[in-house]
Nucleic acid binder design. Structure first.
Length: 559
RNA sequence: GCGCCCGUAGCUCAGUGGAUAGAGCACCGGCCUCCGGAGCCGGGAGCGGAGGUUCGAUUCCUCUCGGGCGUACCA
């Protein structure tokens, strides 16, 4: 249930009916109704809704926009319930002013829906969000953390917007990186079992690899020394990958993220899916051979240069595996596929979409949500990558140090397109500088009101006994209006893949609550008004909680 | 060089082609005998630059100047 959308839909019908009536009466000439918008004006003085339809019709109707607006307005039954007045303003805007009856219905709606408030109608559209998909060869870093926060929040938003959502993690457990990983593991294993071997030049030099190998040695001792190198590497890499993937899953779970599907790249190799997809592209004549390698004609799809699918050594590239992976996604019947990628992968987008198109799928059904990189700050100084661990601060260290709530809120607060400076000190501060507490404090404060009320023997009356029309103060109306916005805000955030909108939203909502709180008392001598305000507090509390929940942030009752 | 992203208030950032561009922080001044002062109220300044499309541009296009990131038979 989305009150704003309902109002807009009904206004849309009213306007279209007015246009058609005017045309029928030969007052207005046009062949097609333009693609007009019904927006919520920035300025309250401009009404509850406004439309630009008159301006857009000017050319077709060969008439001044204000004149057209007058004709349209004359056809609108302003006296009908819900309307206060309809105005023409500015260059030809038609402004609609509604009476407050719709707003007074909001609390009952929220109260009834409870945890479900924000949920839009189901649309039967399958969408997949793939995010983090970190290499299982190391720790999760700050970039993965941002991707996790954005991806998971977006998935929550899409779900509330009415989509059927699946969360997926793509495990890169095959290919070149894994070969190097295996070599690194083997070198460490042999070194730690007393052999003097060289560590590979591009190997994984991090302490975590050594720790992993130590763990393997504690389980299997020196048993692997006698194996052939190939067998030894295979055993080591299997053990290590299992450990790493388990660790990644556990860390992400502690970050509030639970996946529906963990997809292994290796299974694509084993099932021959990669050769299959290369063969398909060859059949469709998007592949050629040069210098012993097989190339995909990605320039045909606007890419800067063609890309190698299969190297001269006969091994497929990561790109080839990724094509097979995306083909698999589309074969699974998703209507919309979203990948959350770090900005360093942007060069991959054009060729991936090209490959999708080459395979006969619609590249518009694939969206890449690109997020800019994260810089970690401590006391205003950039923290450099550590050679020892391969990360600045790993996600589990981050959760340990600043907590899930602050970390998730800060990561998701910014537009993914913006660079993010993550300030450890700020994230840890439990004061006004830290936005997450501002919101949580609002929630805790409302809970406190209810505790106070209860102590005084006051409880929230049944909704049907409450007269919400007693809420007349500006702060009360502003709160109601903001609460009514939540489902539509979810819709817009889903459509534009912009989870940061929900963070802004809940900050605004908390601000409106604090303002109300400082101006008016909930518990007071006027029983009827007290009941209405208790209900207002209850639904404010619910909305804050639901919005925070979307972001993976808790709503504490006390702080 | 070429490609993608970003240049908005002193700082960090919002801003689905609309009317007078908004928050937070910082700074100054107010507000608790009263439901949690982790709060509220008030106070200044800004769309990097130049063209173009449009009735209307912070938003779209071109050029330009800054910053970040790519530009592997790595992933």
């Amino acid at each position: 249930m989305n009150p704003i959308q309902s109002l807009r839909d009904s206004l849309y019908k009213t306007i279209v009916a007015a246009l058609e009536q005017a045309k029928k009466d030969n007052l207005l000439e046009f062949s097609t109704i333009p693609d007009f918008v019904i927006e919520v004006p920035r300025e309250k003085e401009h009404g509850d809704f406004a439309t630009n339809v008159a301006m857009l019709l000017a050319r077709q109707a060969k008439m001044a926009p204000r004149k057209i607006a007058e004709i349209i307005v004359a056809q609108i039954p302003v006296n009908q319930a819900g309307f206060k007045k309809v105005d023409i303003a500015g260059a030809g805007f038609i402004n609609f002013y509604l009476d407050n009856s719709w707003l007074y219905g909001i609390p009952a709606l929220v109260q009834t829906m409870g945890n479900e408030y924000g949920q839009n109608q189901k649309q039967n559209i399958k969408v997949q969000v793939e995010f983090v998909s970190a290499n299982p060869t190391g720790n999760l870093h700050m970039g993965n953390a941002r991707g996790g926060a954005i991806g998971d929040s977006l998935a929550n938003i899409l779900s509330l917007a009415g989509y059927d959502v699946e969360r997926e993690f793509y495990i890169n457990d095959a290919g070149n990186q894994i070969e190097i990983f295996a070599e690194s593991l083997e070198a460490r294993y042999l070194q730690l079992t007393g052999h003097d071997v060289m560590f590979p030049e591009n190997g994984y030099a991090g302490q975590d690899v050594i720790d992993t190998v130590k763990g393997i040695i504690s389980r299997y001792g020196k048993d692997l020394v006698v194996l052939s190198s190939q067998e030894r590497r295979q055993r080591l890499v299997e053990e290590a990958l299992q450990e790493k993937v388990t660790y990644i899953a556990k860390t992400l779970q502690e970050f509030g993220i639970n996946y529906d599907v963990w997809f292994s790249e290796k299974t694509l190799h084993q099932a021959g899916k990669i050769d299959e997809v290369i063969a398909e592209l060859e059949r469709k004549e998007f592949v050629y051979e040069k210098d012993g390698a097989l190339w995909f004609k990605s320039t045909r799809f606007g890419d800067e240069k063609d890309e190698v699918l299969k190297r001269a050594n006969g091994l497929p590239t990561y790109f080839a595996a990724d094509i097979a992976y995306h083909k698999d996604k589309f074969e699974r019947g998703f209507d919309w596929v979203i990948n959350v990628w770090g900005a360093d992968h942007h060069g991959h987008i054009a060729r991936m979409k090209g490959a999708i198109q080459a395979l006969g799928y619609n590249p518009d059904q694939l969206d890449i949500l690109l997020m800019q990189l994260v810089r970690l700050l401590r006391s205003g100084n950039v923290v450099r990558m550590s050679k020892r661990t391969g990360t600045t601060v790993s996600l589990d260290e981050l959760i340990e140090e600043v907590g899930q709530d602050a970390a998730r809120f800060i990561f998701v607060m910014r537009n993914p397109d913006s660079h993010l400076d993550f300030d450890m000190e700020l994230a840890k501060q439990q004061n006004q500088d830290n936005p997450v507490y501002y919101v949580q404090y609002a929630h805790a404060r409302i809970c406190s009101i209810f505790r106070q009320a209860e102590a005084a023997g006051i409880s929230l009356p049944p909704v049907e006994q409450i007269n919400t029309a007693l809420l007349k103060e500006q702060e009360e109306m502003d709160l109601l209006r903001k609460i009514a916005d939540f489902p539509e805000e979810i819709n817009v955030a889903a459509r534009t893949m912009a989870p940061h909108r929900i963070a802004r939203y809940v900050l605004d909502l908390a601000g409106l609550f604090h303002s109300f709180y400082n101006h008016h008392r909930v518990i007071n001598d006027n029983q009827a008004l007290q009941g209405a305000r208790l209900l207002l507090m209850s639904v404010t509390c619910t909305t804050i909680k639901n919005a925070l929940s979307v972001l993976g942030v808790s709503a504490p009752e006390q702080m």
